[in-house]
Design a protein around this nucleic acid. Structure first.
Lengths: 209, 209
DNA sequence: AATTGTACTTACAATCGAGTAAGTAACAAG
DNA sequence: CTTGTTACTTACTCGATTGTAAGTACAATT
């Protein structure tokens, strides 16, 4: 007899709308994914954390992989939005770096992206999940600023793009490998050193602007 | 009845020394690890690739995790050695970058390191697997060169260290996220662009030396 | 109030992968 | 040749994990 007719201690079960349930699951899954990666995600574990049974998750996402895909789609969307939004404020260089670093580091986004790239879920052609080149606007804005700063010799756009790519790669790298590289360099580790790295990077970029 | 008494078609089985066998397994495991990561490594799969049964691997390494640890230990050792060795040649800046990039990229070492960091097998205190700060010598050498290049104003060692860290982080980041970032920047992808990135990075570092 | 849709449950099947038990044969040493 | 060691095999156990089947209860609609 599968599923008892009635549970004696049932305190009138709560029932979420599909949207609410999906959102709750996505959020928890995203957190977990940044920690353990797409291979490490366990449905039973996630379900326990949410206080539901694991088939509930399967009910909403069809399969484990379906859940992962959904998380990625949402994360990529959020990344674009947040970046746009914050950049609209046109902050100073170091401020931008701190912002991006915060986005990458503290919220575990660099880890998530790294997991996805390594597991082949992101960055492979046909590039579907990545969507549009959402960094391009940021680079264009940066280029405008450079042009304004030095009216005499026109800066090369390709150079601006390179500098933006360098920034992105350095910050992503820093948020993942930062302490490892510092240790290997006989340096001290930790958040203060991370901040120091950003300050020096901002200075280097400003000096050669 | 476990294990038949004799195989009719047995063509006099080859038998490797423990050392040979371990080396063979380590090499294959390292390659696989860079591809699928420590969670993705399957003993049966690896064994099939090597043409042995999977308990043979367990015989030499005790457990799956034991194999992973052995691979990491060997990889870290090799990294230090190779780096030392190549640096002893005192090549030019771009040459160094290409060399490191080749080490990171083509041989999948950045991927391997990334997997290990993400899965918490590398970079955690107490830093045992990392050993000594093997980048320090490289940085010191770089600093000597800077001092020689400009006898007038003495360069700051911390600045040299920063520049080395930036280089390492940028190159590791590039070898993993390079194409993703380029795509997001509306740039073209591929090895040529990767090379171009290195050229620009070398130029930036030389110009601000 | 009856009906219908669906969010969610328990129980189960099926698979897959690490690790074990026991035996076999290759090689070295006496 | 005999004997001991050990590299390696086959056959298996056990646990973990994804997915399914079937049923239950909550909530909206009529």
């Amino acid at each position: 007899m599968p599923a008892k007719t009635s549970r004696s201690d049932a305190p009138s079960r709560r029932r979420l709308t599909a949207e609410e349930a999906r959102a709750r699951i996505l959020e928890a899954a995203e957190r977990r994914l940044a920690e353990v990666g797409p291979e490490g995600l366990r449905l039973t574990e996630l379900a326990a954390e949410l206080g539901v049974s694991h088939p509930a998750i399967l009910h909403h996402f069809g399969s484990r992989e379906g859940l992962v895909v959904a998380v990625v789609a949402r994360a990529v969307g959020k990344l674009g939005e947040q970046l746009q939004e914050e950049i609209a404020r046109r902050p100073q260089r170091l401020e931008i770096l701190d912002m991006i670093a915060e986005f990458f580091g503290e919220r575990g986004n660099a880890r998530l992206i790294a997991w996805l790239v390594l597991s082949g879920r992101l960055g492979k052609l046909p590039e579907e999940p990545t969507g549009e080149p959402f960094l391009l606007k940021l680079i264009e804005q940066s280029h405008e600023r450079r042009k304004a700063a030095q009216a005499d010799r026109e800066p090369d756009f390709e150079d601006t793009r390179f500098r933006s790519q360098l920034t992105a790669l350095a910050l992503m790298g820093e948020s993942i490998f930062g302490d490892l590289i510092r240790f290997a360099s006989g340096d001290r580790t930790g958040a203060a050193k991370s901040k120091d790295f950003r300050r020096r990077l901002a200075k280097l970029l400003n000096d050669t602007m």
